[in-house]
Design a protein around this nucleic acid. Structure first.
Lengths: 341, 341
DNA sequence: AAATTTCTGATTTACGTACATCAGAAATCG
DNA sequence: CGATTTCTGATGTACGTAAATCAGAAATTT
């Protein structure tokens, strides 16, 4: 059987109470004694039974998720996944609070984070807007030993403990290669559709996409980026307009949300125009478009995985426990019509 | 706080002992009383604290993994992942035993499963060879209330509780579309390289691949399947030979293991022959080939995820607990050179 | 050396559940 | 109806850890 606190006490020749003081870094232990105990812990390879400890402490993990409002499908799915996690709260000893903040609204996000100051919180997960003010609050929370995890969108140069999201540069590069290869050496124009260049994930996707296109697909020319602000109506008119004005367009990369508008615009010109399309985020709309051939590939990040991963990481960080790094790597999913879940 | 056994006792107007008898289906409770207690449990929404119960019971989960011997990279990686899981045994209350059985050896697999009869085991995970004899033993284990999970390769029509692996038909279809689209409307021959048509996963990949090719890429002709038996040397000579004899080959789908031989054969004819190649399983060899352009896409299943998922499912099944279905779906990973982990 | 202050040990209770024992109540049987 | 048999309650111990209390030992200061 694995060693317990009693074994430590016996091995170190001290009492249970002293072992407890060392383990829970309570005061009242001389340095030499503390080292003796720590040596014994190492010697016999003690590992704390977290379950028993949590039982004794009556531990719950008060977690906060800060997610943007807005009606785009991805964020809707994300909120729904967090909600699902709250249903498992009983089993997982979590107590999850969801705070909604207007998308891209830096002051609001900062205010929400600020309000957490001094509260008894075992972790914060936030969809970060990449601004210095946000970084400042996050760094302060970290310095107060509150586990912070960025979700979906990361925060440049911050000290957040973990990022639960995909590598967006790699996503952009992958989109470029898929589009490039699917177009099989043809020559023509490509249009890129983004939500907003203000968010880091969109910038990074574009960056990766442009890099691969420039280096490996010289026959494909990138048109100026269209910013649809994740708004279906606006997106639809932007796409319709550019398709009408430029007959050399043979491919589209949609790296943001608001694909409803894109799909509507595409359906309006099909099948006369033959276009190869790669989009982000698997939703009911992109799924349908994939099946009927309007879209050729969808890159996706699994919101459920991201939320569950964020929870595991926050709990582990709060306990000073190690995580299985491999398990927490969020993968870029590539969906063709054949491997839809 | 969430309700406990005491709350049930109070609500049902019975004693703790009686609640315990009902919860652990021990004898000595009248039907009416039992129903009264069960009603109370439902009423107050009691959920057993598994951690506390395991602590009280001193529960460990003795799990058995049956994996094939053989030196192909994928199985090597799988064994290594199971081994990693044994290192976490302390934290997870698991006690994992690894049994190695010669690949494709049905009697040996059956014997290994038979030997588990009557042993105190909380679950079995096996890489199934799809044979009626195997199904029979598995069904017997299931009828003895031992959780059984198939790993990587499933068992047709068996009653196994769960399959921790990818949808191989979908994988084959995806490979076909990638290859077809990457070849961008060109005409020519394709060669398919399998390990053995005796294993279900290989058959299914071929099935999916052939279906999509026939339906959507009529200009691409499938040559007879080459069986490399997952052996690098044999694979290398088979591929070299077919490439030499047939100059119309423009694409290759390698759906089994033993890609070392394939890659060697491809490097020998590069860059004179321009070939589009899709292979399975990300290993150090296929990774290198992806980076240098010898292979265009790699389809992969994450062995680490499969093993961890199998463990979670076996534990949950042993406890009669529900699993998060979404979390246990093993996804098909598609790797291009741009999204390598 | 005495008076403090700082450590350490011993002991107890608790967390939520499992499991065992024994006495007493209720139901069933003859 | 009494004698069984079957159920139920009361109680205690255990799992591994946390946390509190209090007495006593050791170190430090005066």
């Amino acid at each position: 059987m694995r060693p317990t606190v009693h074994d430590i006490a016996a091995a170190a020749g001290v009492s249970l109470a002293t072992v407890d003081r060392v383990l829970n870094q309570r005061p009242g232990v001389r340095l030499v004694t503390r080292e003796k105990v720590e040596e014994a812990i190492r010697q016999i390879g003690y590992i704390r039974d977290v379950a028993a400890a949590n039982l004794a402490k009556g531990r719950v993990y008060p977690l906060v998720f800060i997610v943007p409002t807005g009606d785009n499908s991805f964020m809707h799915g994300l909120r729904s996944e967090v909600h699902h996690a709250t249903l498992r709260a009983g089993m997982e000893r979590t107590d999850i609070r969801i705070i909604e903040v207007p998308a891209f609204d830096v002051p609001a996000l900062v205010a929400a984070l600020d309000a957490l100051q001094g509260q008894d919180i075992a972790g914060v997960a936030l969809v970060a807007t990449d601004a210095p003010e946000v970084r400042a609050v996050v760094d302060r929370l970290v310095s107060e030993r509150i586990p912070v995890v960025t979700l979906v969108s990361d925060l440049t140069d911050s000290t957040r403990h973990h990022y639960a999201g995909i590598d967006n540069i790699a996503a952009g590069r992958t989109a470029a290669r898929l589009l490039g290869r699917f177009l099989g050496g043809r020559e023509g124009d490509l249009t890129v559709l983004a939500g907003s260049m203000l968010v880091r994930d969109h910038r990074e996707r574009l960056q990766g996409f442009s890099a691969v296109m420039a280096a490996e697909f010289p026959k494909l020319r990138l048109l100026p980026v269209l910013e649809g602000r994740d708004d279906p109506e606006r997106t639809k008119s932007l796409v319709s307009k550019v398709l009408f004005e430029n007959k050399d367009i043979i491919g589209i990369y949609s790296l943001g949300a608001g694909n409803r508008g894109l799909i509507a615009a595409l359906r309006a010109v099909r099948p006369a125009r033959e276009l190869t399309v790669v989009a982000h985020e698997l939703t009911q709309h992109t799924r349908a478009a994939l099946i009927d051939g309007t879209i050729d590939a969808v890159l996706n990040q699994d919101a459920g995985h991201e939320v569950r991963s964020a929870i595991r990481v926050m709990k582990a960080t709060a306990d000073g426990q190690a995580v299985i790094a491999d398990q927490e790597r969020i993968r870029l999913d590539i969906f063709l019509k054949d491997n839809l879940p």
